[in-house]
Design a protein around this nucleic acid. Sequence first.
DNA 1: CTTCCAATTTTGACTAATCAAAGTATACTG
DNA 2: CAGTATACTTTGATTAGTCAAAATTGGAAG
Lengths: 223, 223
Amino acid sequence: MASKTIENYLKQIYLARQESRGKFIPMGRLANLMEVTPGTATTMVKALADAHLVGYEPRRGVKLSRAGEHLALHVLRRHRLVELLLVRVLKLDWSQVHEEAEEIEHAISERVLEAIDRLLGRPVADPHGDPIPTAGGKVHPQRFTSLATCPLDRPVRIVRILDQEPNFLRFVDQCGLTPQAIVRVQQRDPLADAVRLRIATDKSARCRILSGGVAARFLVRDP
Amino acid sequence: MASKTIENYLKQIYLARQESRGKFIPMGRLANLMEVTPGTATTMVKALADAHLVGYEPRRGVKLSRAGEHLALHVLRRHRLVELLLVRVLKLDWSQVHEEAEEIEHAISERVLEAIDRLLGRPVADPHGDPIPTAGGKVHPQRFTSLATCPLDRPVRIVRILDQEPNFLRFVDQCGLTPQAIVRVQQRDPLADAVRLRIATDKSARCRILSGGVAARFLVRDP
DNA sequence: CTTCCAATTTTGACTAATCAAAGTATACTG
DNA sequence: CAGTATACTTTGATTAGTCAAAATTGGAAG
C-alpha cells in the first residue's frame, strides 16, 4: 500500500498539472505544494520514479505515470466524497471540510468509500463543485468559463470554486457566491483589474467588485 | 500531537489493564498486543515514559500516567464513535467496523468528533456495547455479569461483547446473540465447560451450547 | 547457594521521510 | 561569450519506528 506521503505527492502532482497545462511539473513547484525543501522533493520523486508511479527527468520535472494518475484519482475520490459526507451528513461548515478531509482521505478503506458513495447517491461533485472521480478513475471533463471570462449581462450559475482556503471560502459564503448561486457580471475594467457583478438571489441589489484573479476562481455555466 | 503509534500503544496499555487488574502491564504482553518484538516495545515505552505518558519500571512493566490515560480514553472515544457512525449511518456490517475504525480513529479532529457525537445523539455505547468515554474522559462504570456467571433460568439482556474478531462477530450475529438480545441460561456443566442457553427472540426454541470461555465474553444485565 | 530459563533489555542496523548546506547546471543579462 | 542568479541535485545528518540477535537479570528448582 502507498503511504500517506506518497499519496499526497501524487495528488499534488496531479492537481498541479491541471492548472499549468505543461506535461512536467518543476521540482520547485512540487516542493512548494508539499511544503518541503527542494532536496526532499527531489529525493522523494526519485523514489516514486523507481516505483513507476511517475516519470522524472532531472531539471525538467515530474509527471504522473498511468499507475500514478490512477492512484492520484483514487485519493481525490476519497477526499471529495469525504468532504461531501462531512457537509451533507455531519453538517460541517463548507469552509472547513477541506482540511479535515486531508487527513481522513488516507484512512478509509474501499468498503467505507463505497458506503459513503452509496449513502450520498453517487454524487458527481463535492461541496466546492470539484468533480468526484468514479471508482474506475474517470473524471467527467468540465469545460466551464469563469467570472473573469463569461459574457456580460447574462445570468450564469456558479458551479465550482478553485480555492480551498478557509478564509476565502468564508468570504465566499458571506457574499453568497457559493456553488449554485446565479450571478450576472455587469462590467469588467481591465485596467483596474476589476469585475463588477450582481448576485441574482441577493434582493438588496448590491454589487460586488472582485479582482480579475479572484473572479477567475469562480467557474460558471449557463443556469 | 501524539503520533498514531503512540496513540495505539496507549490504547493497548489501557485495554490490557481492563482485563488483568494488576497495575503494571508486562512488556511481553504489550509487545504481543502491538505485534512488535519485545525490544521494540521496551524502546517505545521508554520514550512514552520520557513524555510522561506512562510510568515504566524495568522488568516490572508499564502503566498509564494521568495524561496517558486521558489520551487513551480520547482515542477510545474516537474509535467507538466512528464504529457507531459506520454502523448506524453508513450501514456497514457490525462485524467489520472494528478494523475500519482502527485507521479512522487517528484521522479525525475534535470538530468532526463532536459532529459525529451530535449526529448520533450523544450515544453511550458502540455497536459491541463498549462504553463511549465522554469528551471529558469519563467512562460510565459498568458492572455486569456474563453468560458464564449470571443466574440460571432467568431472562437476561446481552449488553456487551468482549471480542472484536470479525469471524466471531459473524457467528454471534448468526446466532442472534447480539447486544439487546434476551437470552436465558438453562444449564451450566462445569466439568464439560459448557453453557446451554436459549434465545428468547428465537421462535424455533433451539438451544445453543457455548464453552465457558466464550460465554464469559457476553456481558448481560436484567432485561 | 548454585544453575538455568524465560522474560526482558541492550545493541547495532535498517527504512521512510525529512532538513541544511554545499555543489552543479541552466538560463539570463549585459 | 563571460558572469551571475536561479533552480535543482547531492551529501550528510536527524527522527520515528522497527527488527534481529546478543547480553542481562530475577526468580524457580534443585
